[in-house]
C-alpha cells in the first residue's frame, strides 16, 4: 500500500508547476496527474522531465478516471474554477482552490487549518492574503475593538502573469473578503502595487490599523509568534518593520522571499500561497493516512 496520498494538479502555469515540485518533495503527497491544456508549455515539459503523468484534457481526465487522485489543486482561473467546483464535489475530491474564486472555505493555515480540512473545497484566497491576514489576525487578537484593517502589498512586476494583471480587481475583492472574515472587521481595504524595479524586489506586505491605545508589546509578541509559525513552511517570511505607532496609526511590514523552486525567489507572493496550499494538503493527507 502506498504511504502517500495521490494528488492531481489542474493548471500547468507557474503556480501549478511550482506546486508540483513541492508535492513531489512531500513525505505525504505524490502527484499522479498533471493536467492542463497545452502539452507544449514549459510547465508540462518540466513535469515530463520529472516523470509525472501528463494530460492536456484539463479537468476531464479526472472525470474520466476519478480514481486517479484524492486531492485536486485547481490552479486555473477563477472563472474556470466556478465550472470545476461542482464537478469535483460530485467526484468527492478534496479540492484546494488556488484561484480567487472564493466559493470554498477561505483558509489561512495558521488560523483555520482544522476547519479547512473538514470541508471539501478550500480556497487559498490570494498571495497578498496569505502574507497579510496572519499578521492582521494577530493584531486583531490583541485589539478586538478594531473595525478597519488595510493591507498593501508590493510585488515584483515580473511575478505577475497576464492572468493576474487582467484580473487585478478579483485579487482585491478576494483579499478584502479574507481580511473581513478572519479579523472580524466590518471594513477592509486591500491595495496592490506592481513594482518594475530591476533587480526584482521581494514581495512585501504592510498591515495598517487605526488604534487609540495600542498595546505594542503584546502586538509584537503575537506577531512574532505568528511569524515563527509561518516560517515553518515559508522560511523566507520575515518581519522587517516591527509594529510602529504614529498619529493613531499602527503599521507593520513583512517581507516574503520564496523558496525558489520553479518560481524565482523574488516571487515570494506566489511561493507563500503555494506553501500554504501544501500545508493544507499535507495536513489532510496526514489525517487520512493516520486513519488507515
Amino acid at each position: 500500500m502506498s504511504s502517500k496520498i495521490r494528488v492531481g494538479i489542474i493548471g500547468t502555469g507557474n503556480i501549478g508547476t511550482d506546486l508540483l515540485m513541492k508535492v513531489q518533495r512531500s513525505k505525504f503527497l505524490e502527484c499522479t496527474i498533471f493536467s492542463g491544456r497545452n502539452l507544449a508549455s514549459s510547465g508540462m515539459s518540466k513535469a515530463a522531465a520529472m516523470g509525472v503523468r501528463l494530460s492536456d484534457e484539463g479537468i476531464d481526465i479526472i472525470v474520466r478516471e476519478p480514481d486517479l487522485c484524492d486531492i485536486v489543486f485547481d490552479a486555473t482561473s477563477a472563472k474556470s474554477h466556478l465550472a470545476h467546483a461542482s464537478i469535483l464535489e460530485q467526484l468527492g475530491k478534496f479540492v484546494i482552490d488556488m484561484t480567487p474564486a472564493k466559493i470554498g472555505v477561505l483558509c489561512v493555515p495558521e488560523v483555520n487549518l482544522e476547519e479547512a480540512i473538514g470541508s471539501r473545497n478550500v480556497n487559498m484566497i490570494t498571495c497578498g492574503g496569505q502574507a497579510s491576514i496572519p499578521i492582521a489576525y494577530a493584531i486583531s487578537k490583541v485589539h478586538s475593538e478594531i473595525d478597519y484593517i488595510e493591507t498593501v502589498s508590493t510585488i515584483s512586476s515580473r511575478s505577475a502573469g497576464p492572468g493576474t494583471r487582467i484580473n487585478i480587481d478579483e485579487y482585491i475583492e478576494a483579499t478584502e473578503k479574507g481580511l473581513k472574515l478572519f479579523c472580524g472587521v466590518s471594513h477592509a481595504k486591500a491595495m496592490i502595487n506592481l513594482n518594475p524595479a530591476n533587480p526584482a524586489i521581494d514581495m512585501q506586505t504592510t498591515v495598517l490599523v487605526e488604534l487609540k491605545n495600542p498595546d505594542i508589546e503584546n502586538i509584537l509578541v503575537e506577531i512574532e509568534k505568528m511569524v515563527s509559525k509561518i516560517q515553518r513552511y515559508v522560511p523566507g517570511y520575515k518581519l522587517i518593520v516591527k509594529p510602529t505607532f504614529d498619529n493613531g496609526k499602527l503599521l507593520t511590514t513583512v517581507r516574503v522571499q520564496g523558496l525558489g523552486d520553479y518560481l524565482p525567489k523574488f516571487a515570494g507572493n506566489l511561493d507563500i500561497i503555494n506553501c500554504a496550499a501544501i500545508e493544507v494538503a499535507e495536513h489532510f493527507a496526514h489525517k487520512k493516512l493516520a486513519k488507515v
Binding site: V152, T154, M191, N193, N195, P196, N198, Q204, L251, T253
Partner: peptide
C-alpha cells in the same frame, strides 16, 4: 525604485 503607493517603504 520606489513607486507611489509604497509609502510603507519610507519607514523601512
Amino acid at each position: 525604485g520606489a513607486i507611489a503607493g509604497q509609502e510603507d517603504l519610507i519607514v523601512e
